[in-house]
Nucleic acid binder design. Structure first.
Length: 97
DNA sequence: ATCATGACTAATG
DNA sequence: CCATTAGCCATGA
């Protein structure tokens, strides 16, 4: 039967992931921004931890979340990939403009 | 209940 | 620019 492992999400995780899902193509937000949006402005590290475990990198664009100091921040698939994705998205957005 | 962890942040040197 | 530090908080052991 089903071999798909069901994943549990806490209320906090859902709020974070939903917010990340709202970030439009070619745009980036900061961990701080996300934290503030979900009403937990101080839970920045907790937000990062949610993205760190994000099992759906293809569908939940955590690569669009960077640090508030301008640095790239982490990414489960590698920072290099993250940078490329952000650059590529900007180009795509330009192409369909 | 306590404790360590970490894809962070702001301030400081 | 880089390194350090204190503050921060959800989560899992």
């Amino acid at each position: 039967m089903g071999k798909i492992k069901s994943i549990e999400f806490t209320a906090f995780e859902k709020r974070v992931l939903k917010e990340v899902l709202k970030i439009p193509l070619g745009k980036v937000r900061t961990y701080k921004w996300i934290a503030k949006r979900i009403g937990k402005p101080k839970a920045v590290r907790a937000v990062a931890n949610v993205l760190r475990k994000n099992p759906y990198t293809l569908f939940i664009p955590c690569h669009r979340v960077i640090r508030s100091d301008g640095k790239i921040g982490g990414y489960s698939l590698g920072k290099g990939v993250k940078v490329k994705l952000i650059e590529l998205e900007k180009k795509i957005k330009e192409l369909i403009k």
